[in-house]
Design a protein around this nucleic acid. Structure first.
Lengths: 192, 192
DNA sequence: TCACTATACGGAGGTGACCTCCGTTTACGC
DNA sequence: GCGTAAACGGAGGTCACCTCCGTATAGTGA
């Protein structure tokens, strides 16, 4: 996703830039603390700006969520690249998916958003994840450790679905690990 | 779940019973047509009762959703019992889970509700599903077709999670089948 | 048939969040 | 400094939720 005020358009005015950054930071904290259905007016207030300013910078809640999530996407891209050198490839894939979960779970509600396909903001997020994860999956497939008929898009959807389930059963700390374990076993299974 | 006006308490007054039934029927149609986040006031209006009457019978949206879903639960229980005689047991289990998905997918939004553990109404729904599915899973395990370290609660959570993912990608009609296939393969995999 | 009362009805109105709109303010280039 | 494009901000319209309580009525017993 283009950095606000980035290439092409002229740079943002100083006050706009300042407000944008503060909103992003306050939103991050609010999402972590209260989940992503926190009232947007609260975020605007914490950032010391009017609600109109929030909506100018982020036209809807999803835009704000995905902007916050950009930082995690960067981390996950880097991590994905690192893991390309880890063996065995299936373990690298498994670790990366676990990291996807860890970074996503920071913000209760993001997993649900990432599964929905409509919004252009989330579409951009998903593309970045697929890029990073696709390489890891392909490597595991080429090593013959993972069945060929699986695509990264499906695997990410499954991961987010499981994450969502785990989010909704907070009392069961092991749930995510158990369910993902089942899935990883399915990945290794012979095709057909 | 106890039928309203059932054993114990005295029967409902005729007008109350009539309104209850109409509300349930209108809610069913509204949920199918518009999804479960339809405005409750619309349901009340279609049923020809005041909003207060709706809230008296169904204290919150979840109560209404689960009451509607009762019919499907009955069907799924019956189906579960039937399938206990089908071979191979894993196929019976697979078919039942597919039916769970079909009956749940009728009402966009129900899958999400069934995954949340807090509410007593949904807890009752989940218990019924577990009862029906538990027998099928146990049978498949005793036949040695499914790994022993899997529990019906996890399997249902996974099914609902996948269903939710499919709900959010309506353009991909095959998604549910693909993802569940992966999971069923994981179920068959050797433990450890 | 009538009157009595527990039960149920209904919708006005308070609450809270969303989002838009536009008059006011301000940063920045000249 | 001055002009203007860019940005601010919050009042207020909208919508759904949910409660509360005055009114209506089904069922009962005489």
């Amino acid at each position: 996703m283009a950095v606000a005020g980035g290439a092409g358009s002229r740079p943002m005015r100083a006050d706009a830039r300042r407000n944008y950054d503060r909103l992003l930071e306050e939103a991050r904290q609010a999402f972590v603390t209260h989940g992503t259905d926190v009232a947007l007016e609260d975020i605007a207030r914490s950032a010391g700006v009017g609600i109109g300013t929030l909506y100018r910078h982020f036209p809807d809640r999803t835009a704000l969520m995905t902007a916050v999530f950009e930082t995690e996407l960067d981390a996950l891209s880097v991590r994905g690249t690192e893991l390309l050198t880890l063996d065995p490839p299936t373990e690298a894939l498994r670790l990366w998916l676990r990291d996807v979960a860890l970074h996503t779970a920071m913000y209760r509600g993001v997993a649900a958003i990432l599964m929905a396909s409509q919004n252009p903001f989330t579409a951009a997020c998903r593309d970045r994840l697929r890029e990073a994860g696709g390489a890891l999956l392909r490597r595991a497939q080429e090593a013959g450790e993972v069945r060929e008929d699986t695509e990264i898009a499906d695997l990410l959807k499954l991961t987010h679905a499981v994450l969502l389930a785990a989010e909704k059963s907070p009392e069961d700390r092991e749930l995510f690990g158990r369910l993902m374990g089942l899935i990883m076993d399915g990945l290794r299974a012979k095709t057909g």
